[in-house]
Write a protein that binds this DNA or RNA. Structure first.
Lengths: 340, 340
DNA sequence: TATTGGATTGCATACGTTTGCAAACAACGA
DNA sequence: TCGTTGTTTGCAAACGTATGCAATCCAATA
């Protein structure tokens, strides 16, 4: 015998007031006298009343739901971000509708449609780029979008990333200062701004030391491509003595391939540096030197700018970049007197 | 200039029919002539009309939203399950509202309240147990619940797990047959059915070989507790030569501690066996022998039984156990002639 | 005491859909 | 031609809330 849902009508009847009064008591910023507030609250707790967010959404047009689109759930970085985002948004009274999608554009299109159906108040895409068409659709519908860990040209779009170019530069300086002779880069997917920016920063950083990368290969953000790239690099006549890998997830594959398959030692034969600093990077099995993306601060910034755009009409999209430090561990030779 | 939302009224006007007709065309199983179907569909695509799921939910009481409650997102097993669940449910036209919670009971209580507010059609809890009170609340509200990777006594509750007792037995036989003399167990959290069942099966399995576990320590499903347990085990006068760990996530910590901190070799000095077979277990750095939980089949079973209870009124909760194989890798000595 | 103005309240409508009901209609055999 | 049956259709009432408007209240001022 399912218990009947209790509505604001029921509360109103019990409290001896009108339904509107009940509504006002539960609507922040509405006017009600202390006397009615008391009566209503008492009746409400007695009946176990809670406002129906769906009905509320119908009226106000605000669902208090945020759509989260995420692609790479096998990369530890994203579950972590998801968890933090979820907690931060829950604390602000929002909830998360998740969509998983391959990064290819066609599924995403359908998803954006469904998100708009549900009248989500905002959208966060983690490591997923939106086409201009989709951006436009969301803008037309008045739904703010924040790209998490992905940038996009043009300024209709909010995004939160780490300072990828700068990060690439830091890694380059670090490896150059470490006395490495032949430094290669297995890059993040060239279809992503993060991948491109890190690669660009890296090349710039080497150039500042009058050096060129030995090679740059697209690792597609997958283990397979990264392993393959590692093999082809090490098969060269002049194999690299250091590899900067576009993210930790690939860096683990690189290390697995170097050590397990090719029998090389890290960092004795080859130094490896990653990007992200996921928890696994700190585990003894990898002990990976890597450039940290500060998840917490990125999440904070994402939530702040998204809620700002939702709740403060007229606030503009912004592109936020967050600096991250290089975390020194055992997978790469550390230059003497390295203080930076 | 946000484009005005197009409603069934607009479509009706354009198609020259009543609003109800439009609704019937978009409601599966409602009656409408081919002529009106055509007219309405044409008008709908012309205007870009899509039914509003929130308004629909108000009437029908069905939101087509599933609440997913998840605790351990740093254990690779759960992001994977989340991804699969999300895909399977999306394919059936459902969507996932995620809630993250620590496993302690108080936050969960609030979450169940919010889930009921949103009139979710069903709830999946991943590795989170629900108190009897919460189970009852959901039952009263007519919301089916499926526990994923966690069991619960009493039969009001659906659950999908792997065959944990059996799995524990298999590992015991394997380690016993491998000629290990002192076999210890770092168990999953004793507050969880999975942890208890695996431990029980393991003890039973050893008993079948007339053996006793050297020791059983609760690893709490955390890396820290598992590392600590490893240290205390290896500090014994008679340290184990094999450790069965309650899940892969802890097993990695155990291996890190054994190899990195204690300078031991795996499996030469100590064999390690895990439980789950997350992708990381197959990576060269760990190469972990482990009992596989077949995520795909567990997800299928979860979705099937949940949707069954949602869509077929009167269908009963069921407890499903799925067998998994032992995956042989390099972290544990393999018995001669092992065929099982 | 009469007047004013602000705070509080109820009435009624709206949000966008589904669905019971009865009217309209089409098809068909008598 | 006329009932009869089964299918389509429109009307109107929900679902549970927020909110503009006008009415009411209350205290404070003149």
């Amino acid at each position: 015998m399912p218990e009947a849902r209790v509505t604001s009508q029921d509360v109103a009847r019990l409290a001896g007031v009108s339904q509107s009064a009940v509504s006002r008591v539960f609507t922040p910023g509405a006017s009600a006298s202390q006397a009615t507030i008391d009566k209503v609250k008492r009746a409400a707790t007695q009946l176990g009343y809670r406002p129906n967010p769906l009905a509320r959404a119908m009226i106000t047009g605000k669902s208090r739901i945020i759509g989260l689109v995420v692609a790479y759930l096998d990369n530890q970085f994203y579950p972590l971000a998801l968890e933090r985002l979820s907690n931060a948004l829950q604390a602000k009274g929002y909830h998360i509708l998740v969509f998983t999608t391959p990064n290819s554009g066609d599924g995403l299109d359908r998803i954006v449609g469904e998100l708009m159906d549900y009248r989500v108040d905002g959208i966060i895409t983690a490591s997923v780029a939106m086409s201009n068409g989709m951006t436009q659709r969301c803008a037309d519908a008045g739904i703010p979008v924040v790209l998490f860990n992905r940038g996009q040209d043009g300024d209709g779009q909010s995004s939160v990333t780490s300072a990828n170019i700068d990060g690439g530069r830091k890694v380059a300086s670090f490896l150059a200062a470490g006395g490495h002779r032949r430094i290669a880069h297995i890059a993040g997917w060239s279809g992503s701004s993060t991948g491109r920016d890190r690669a660009r920063g890296f090349t710039q950083g080497l150039a500042a030391h009058d050096r060129l990368p030995l090679d740059v290969i697209d690792g597609m953000y997958t283990r397979d491509a990264a392993s393959q790239a590692t093999r082809s690099l090490m098969a060269r006549a002049d194999p690299p003595d250091a590899i900067f890998v576009g993210n930790d997830h690939m860096a683990f594959a690189v290390m697995d391939t170097l050590r397990g398959e090719l029998g090389l030692r890290v960092p004795h034969d080859v130094s490896v540096v990653g990007y992200d600093d996921v928890p696994l990077a700190g585990w003894a099995a990898y002990d990976l030197t890597t450039l940290r993306q500060p998840v917490n601060r990125m999440v904070e910034a994402t939530v702040d700018t998204l809620l700002d755009q939702i709740e403060t009409p007229g606030s503009l999209p912004e592109k936020i970049e967050i600096q991250g430090p290089l975390i020194l561990r055992g997978s790469a030779r550390i230059p003497k007197d390295w203080t930076q």
